[in-house]
């Protein structure tokens, strides 16, 4: 975690109201991983006093450039759209815990709902670089909001669903998942909460449907501390995420982003609030309480 002054290199509106911005921030490209985020301070002239969290959308360690992708939804994001090349912003990062890819995984299924693409986009690059096969399922309300395929590497299989049927599958992106669940070794998702909850339910039933837990815990080594074995994955640990079929990147209103204010929590299955900024934003889907049990 460090504070850096990052210089805007490029800013463009890639979809209506959605912006892609590139910043020169070499210090943040070192050691940052897919799923992590930066907390950026808007200018102080406007009464905006909270930083804004953005996933690492892409990270180029050669050029020292990171990109963020966001929708202009309020005064804070509107402020970012007015930045011009050469402007500097104050970034805090890298923050949070990343996606964990099992070394044995060959086939990665990525599921993004709308702007959730920004949460998994970096994982596309990392996985392809490591020689893995990637299928990206993308859902949006309609064709005008579909992430442009020219912003993705050619090697990725890109499948689109739209709610109104104006492009690709007509319906929800989650409808597409069953066709890939046998192929996929692991799945990674980011998007609206109802989408993630549906995916978590699908993931929970996957082992039973396929009749085999391909990378799941071995019998007798159930999740949790009671296993006793030194190699058992503790809840919340990187190993627990790595062993989970589905990892999700969560979103929540955020204050400090370093774990101090406890503003950004989600509930886990044992009734303990987990900080999206610190224990997350990436969680194993089976770590979280999807019924909203507060």
């Amino acid at each position: 975690m460090q504070l850096v002054a990052a210089e805007l290199v490029e800013s463009r509106e890639i979809l209506p109201g959605q912006w892609l911005q590139a910043f020169h921030a070499p210090a943040l490209t070192v050691g940052s991983r897919a799923g992590q985020f930066v907390h950026i301070r808007p200018g102080d002239f406007s009464g905006l006093i909270l930083r804004r969290p953005f996933s690492f959308n892409t990270v180029d360690r050669t050029t020292g450039v990171i990109t963020i992708h966001f929708r202009a939804v309020g005064r804070g994001t509107a402020w970012f759209t007015r930045l011009r090349p050469g402007d500097r912003v104050d970034m805090l990062g890298p923050l949070g815990r990343p996606f964990e890819v099992d070394p044995r995984s060959r086939h990665l299924l990525l599921i993004a709902g709308g702007l959730g693409i920004a949460g998994v986009r970096m994982l596309v690059d990392d996985a392809l670089r490591a020689g893995r096969e990637v299928t990206l399922l993308f859902g949006a309300a309609s064709a005008v909001e579909v992430y442009p395929s020219n912003l993705l590497p050619d090697e990725v299989e890109y499948v689109v669903a739209t709610d109104d049927g104006s492009l690709g599958h007509s319906g929800y992106v989650t409808d597409l998942v069953p066709a890939y669940e046998a192929w996929a070794d692991q799945a990674f998702a980011c998007g609206p909460a109802p989408m993630l909850a549906t995916l978590a339910r699908l993931a929970a039933g996957r082992s039973a449907r396929l009749g085999v837990a391909r990378l799941g815990p071995k019998p007798g080594r159930g999740a949790g501390r009671s296993g006793g074995a030194a190699r058992a994955a503790l809840p919340g640990s990187p190993a627990a995420r790595r062993k989970s079929f589905l990892q999700v990147s969560m979103e929540q209103n955020m204050g400090c982003a370093v774990g101090a204010c406890l503003g950004c929590v989600v509930m886990d299955t044992s009734g303990v609030p987990q900080r999206v900024c610190r224990e997350g934003p990436v969680f194993a889907s089976d770590e979280l309480d999807w019924e909203g049990g507060w």
Binding site: G47, L48, I49, L50, G76, Q252, N253, M254, G255, C261, L262, G263, C264, V265, V266, G271, V272, P273, W294
Partner: peptide
């Protein structure tokens, strides 16, 4: 204490509201 149901924070003009 488990604390309150989220959302727990939101920005306001030159300030913020919290209900941790």
């Amino acid at each position: 204490r488990v604390g309150n149901r989220p959302p727990r924070v939101t920005e306001t003009p030159a300030g913020m509201l919290n209900s941790i």
